[in-house]
């Protein structure tokens, strides 16, 4: 009776989506209003919309809005791909950051940085990030195709993660001067500060494509709840699913990392917060986790600007400070459930 009652009283899915979308947009507005110079958001907005080139309009259009929108896009990408990876590997610990996709993307971007290609071609950085993410995703795919179980896959992901990390460290070690190394280190920590409209337009198309690929797997991810044989027998092509999810994660995470550096744990935390509200259905979880990821990232990015620390803390540092204890609690809970 009580179980049936909770089933009935669950918040309807459309209401959840609408509520989270509203929250994400509100946080976007707050993010645009928060900054280091005194700033009248209303006046700037009306100036900008009217096409008056005032300082306020310029700050809004070139600094505040890109930062807020990038927070939204990056957070959605991380939350969505986290949910997609967890559903696909049927492991609640799978996350772009943990299975090496993010760090490989970071490595790709660092190589581009290092080689000087990024100065020559603005597109080089996101392309480098995506190339790194694709490499990690293809390695994971090869392991999956050889019949590795999900535990083996996660361990393989961790191996990819450390390999990419050590190669990044190697690049730093070989950096021609300490300033270049410092620049890379700060970039790796992950931040949304001082990003502009150029970066926004650069990463928008690959991110949207990545989202579409991940979301197209919703039904198949639901079916995978019953294991691979059952999902196959329900009419889903699992090879196609693998290719779509890996390409989708690589596009979305690769471009996200190339703009903001590594922002960890959003992809882990967002699906976990949303799972009970999605009735644990992996397909439904995708969109909800994306929206929750956007909210978390925006909130963290607002927090770094409200904190008195100057220069501001890096976004990735804050998400890791919150996310890592969350991971420990999560593992403790998983162990209890298994026992």
């Amino acid at each position: 009776m009580t179980a049936a009652a909770t089933w009935e009283s669950r918040i309807p899915y459309p209401a959840l989506v609408a509520g989270l979308t509203g929250l994400a947009l509100a946080l976007c507005a707050v993010s645009a209003a928060v900054g280091y110079v005194p700033f009248d958001l209303g006046a700037a907005l009306s100036d900008w919309l009217a096409g008056r080139p005032t300082l306020g309009a310029l700050v809004l259009a070139e600094l505040r809005l890109p930062r807020a929108l990038l927070g939204l896009l990056v957070g959605f990408s991380l939350g969505l791909t986290g949910a997609a990876m967890q559903g696909w590997l049927r492991n609640p610990l799978a996350e772009p950051g943990l299975v090496g996709v993010s760090s490989a993307a970071a490595l790709g971007a660092v190589i581009v940085f290092y080689s000087g290609l990024s100065a020559a071609l603005s597109l080089a950085l996101p392309l480098g990030g995506m190339a790194g993410a694709v490499t990690a995703a293809v390695l994971l795919n090869l392991m999956a195709a050889r019949g590795a179980g999900t535990t083996a896959l996660v361990i393989g992901g961790i191996a990819i993660n450390s390999l990419a990390g050590s190669l990044t460290a190697l690049a730093l070690n070989l950096a021609p001067n300490p300033y270049a190394a410092l620049e890379i280190v700060f970039w790796l920590m992950g931040s949304l500060a001082d990003r502009g409209t150029d970066q926004l337009w650069l990463v928008l198309p690959p991110m949207l494509a990545g989202w579409a690929l991940c979301l197209s797997g919703a039904r198949a991810l639901d079916a995978l709840t019953l294991g691979e044989d059952a999902a196959h027998s329900l009419g889903f092509d699992l090879t196609g699913l693998r290719v779509r999810l890996i390409a989708g994660a690589a596009l979305a995470v690769g471009s996200a990392v190339s703009v903001t550096g590594a922002v960890g744990f959003v992809g882990l935390v967002a699906p976990h917060l949303m799972r009970p509200l999605a009735g644990a259905r992996p397909g439904r979880l995708l969109l909800l986790a994306g929206l929750a990821g956007a909210c978390l990232t925006l909130a963290a990015d607002i927090a770094v600007r409200l904190m008195p620390t100057r220069p501001e803390l890096k976004l990735g540092v804050v998400t890791a400070l919150i996310g890592a204890p969350f991971l420990i609690v999560l593992i403790a809970r998983l162990r209890r459930e298994e026992a």
Partner: peptide
């Protein structure tokens, strides 16, 4: 898939779904 229903041996259920949602997967 519409012609053959397959019930695997000791079928795994990977997420804490409710029974009704799980049975609904058979309609996919």
């Amino acid at each position: 898939a519409r012609g053959i229903a397959y019930l695997p041996q000791s079928g795994p259920v990977h997420w804490p779904l409710r029974t009704e949602a799980l049975v609904m997967l058979g309609r996919l």
